[in-house]
Design a protein around this nucleic acid. Sequence first.
RNA 1: CGGGGCGUGGCGCAGUCCGGUAGCGCACCUGCUUUGGGAGCAGGGGGUCGCCGGUUCAAAUCCGGCCGCCCCGACCA
Length: 581
Amino acid sequence: MRLSTSFIPTLKEDPSDAEVVSHRVMLKGGMVRLLAAGLYSYLPFLWKSLLKAMQIIREEMNAIGGQEFHFPALHPIDLWDETGRNEDFGDDVFRLKDRKGRGMLLAPTHEEVVGDIARSEIRSYRDMPQIWYQIQTKFRDEPRPRSGLLRTRQFIMKDSYTLDVSQAALDHGYDLHARAYRRIFTRCGLRFFEARASSGLMGGTGSQEFLVEGASGEDRAVVCDSCGFAGNVEVAGTQWQMAPGEEAPLEEVHTPEQRTIEDVSKFLDIPAERLVKSLVYMDAEDRPVMFLVPGSHDLNEAKAASAVGSAVRPAEAEEVLRVMSAPAGFVGPVGAPEGLGIFADLSLEGLLDGATGANRGDYHVVHMNLARDVQVTSYADLRTVHEGEACTVCGSAVRVITAIEMGHIFKLGTKYSEALGATFQDENEEEKPIVMGSYGIGVERIAAAAIETRADDDGTTWPSSIAPYHVLVLAVNMGDDEVVKASETLYEEMMSAGLEVLFDDRDIRAGAKFNDADLLGLPLRVTIGRKALDRGVAEVLIRIEKQTVDVPIAEAAAFCREKIDAEIAGYNQRADEVQDG
RNA sequence: CGGGGCGUGGCGCAGUCCGGUAGCGCACCUGCUUUGGGAGCAGGGGGUCGCCGGUUCAAAUCCGGCCGCCCCGACCA
């Protein structure tokens, strides 16, 4: 492709609205344009990369026996009422009506449609296992789209679904997906890791995320470099435990205007961890619950929700006052109202000498013995872990990192098949619900993560496997006939060699060409100019290494072909190595 | 949903406090010169100042309402 006739509208100046690297590179590099918040047009250059990523996904999905579908993106809303997820998704789903007034929605995911086909078509245990997948646009009315393509309201997802006769069969389909995912991300040139995860809205019995470490990510994960354990902070715990302390009689102390942990800790001269945070939340039915975590740590709401078995939200100040008869800042579990569910963090078990709010304005209690003074409903892992705490598996210090979620796989079980009546007859003539799994990959995030992890100040560098083109041929001066002739020849040769080539044949100054080349970040840049020509060579820049090598012009095409092939072969080999986890 | 910032030619911004003919750089068009890291000179085109309403002789500027985009937070008592 000739750059002179391409639509790759690069910008000279940094776009003002882009903060994260991938967003900035994509806007500046003429790869995307914003239509509205969280809605982007993908321009030809980026689209080529996305197509390559999708092709890799297809190959690996087909390799595990997946069959590609194309489901509707527009669904009748009554189907979603059958599973209850119309309500569960709340404002996150786009809803509309057709001309007859029937409620419709733009699909945020496709379990319902898969379940609908399964219930009418899958009759017998002989019809399974099935692996169904599609690569399709999803719609989610996110509360806050952000970070360019990392969180949008319309995005492309590879979603797949397994239909099985048993939990054991599901485990197999799930493992096949884990294997395919490892191969996909590796072949796309990404350094990923896997983490245990929360199932959230999907429900089910187990799930796992595929993440790429990167500062722009929205996920936080606990990782142990020593034993390899990794988990999303929403589920991962540590062995951290505080010393129980000395037992003493409960005592109420005057703490005027001392509301925050920091204030009270200073005022009473008690370490923050011994100050028990007493947090009032409301569950999905608007019933109050209380969570207790050490003052040194934060409550993790995802953990809190799974402890209670319901979504939770922080109580409003008035609700706190009504429930506890004490103002926020001074509430506590001692003398809490009858019937209030009290969930305490595991690290507080056996606490003998804690302090917390006294349920009376301007007062706290000290020497709280949790077992003696409080009716704890249950102990659970509730706190967000800190860097350096001990790994639950091996005891080594863990790291807490930010990461981009690339893929997520779920063992759904029978939640959807039961709700939809998707059953089959087994070999004993028994009617059973189909056992389902569901698996997703965010396609744009593959490109975004590649940029996030590989960009420098000048632009990005694509992994060869998903690079929009392999090589950029840069003709330094289009006013020089010899340069034009040599670069045209090389361009043709490279295409004959099967390389994908972007030829910068624009009649503009060299500086502008070099800057665009750096920005667009194709794996190889071949410069043809007076200087090189006089020496009979082409200057090949290996973008990721920032290394330039002189190659005789006649050999340049073969040299590039070899470089690209070697990189892709390297990814493929690595995929073979990592596929089994 | 709460908080903050921003909205002025295609892009990046100044002008707004203190009302008085809408500006700068880049980009674009024409010509000449130039040509290995975003050229120079000369000439030229392009803007409902986010939208609606109000105040005023006069509004990009003041007042009210709305919309949009970006960032932070979705919480600690």
